[in-house]
């Protein structure tokens, strides 16, 4: 199936445009001196042109989306990953890691009833006792 403008591409260009616009606005409102804008203004101007060029290019060459599957699966794992990152310092590194690895293994096709949770538990212990002990910062844990 070919499409002129995939939704993921529109989302990316939207993020680029919105983030660049906000950074430029923030930099200009903070100080309009040359020293402050020496990179931000020329880069934003070139980015604006590039966004237009890419959009024009995309309309000229339709994209084959059929080869790219699994958007929802990827998005689900990505959302889970974001939730895990947030949970690390809120519910504890050990519990968050155990739950994420278990769910991640199952979502990625890991089979068996007891293997994924057993692996997740062993991996979590190894990570907390090994990796965690090297951290120069305090690390919140709930169980370990």
């Amino acid at each position: 199936m070919t499409t002129r403008f995939p939704a993921t591409h529109a989302a990316l260009l939207g993020i680029v445009f919105a983030a660049s616009g906000f950074i430029l606005w923030s930099a200009v409102s903070a100080s309009a001196s040359l020293n402050n804008l020496v990179v931000a203004v020329p880069v934003a101007a070139v980015l604006g042109i590039l966004v237009l060029l890419v959009i024009a290019g995309t309309f000229r060459k339709p994209v084959d989306e059929s080869a790219k599957t699994g958007v929802w699966g990827d998005l689900l794992l990505l959302a889970g990953f974001a939730a895990f990152c947030f949970a690390l310092t809120h519910i504890g590194f050990d519990v968050a890691t155990f739950v994420f690895v278990w769910a991640g293994v199952v979502m990625s096709g890991g089979r068996g009833l007891w293997q994924p949770p057993l692996y997740a538990a062993l991996f979590t212990v190894l990570l907390v006792k090994g990796f965690g002990s090297l951290f120069p910062y305090p690390m919140l844990t709930l169980v370990l």
Partner: peptide
């Protein structure tokens, strides 16, 4: 999932 967890750590 293991390497993703290590990335966050």
């Amino acid at each position: 999932p293991s390497v993703l967890a290590m990335c966050a750590w």
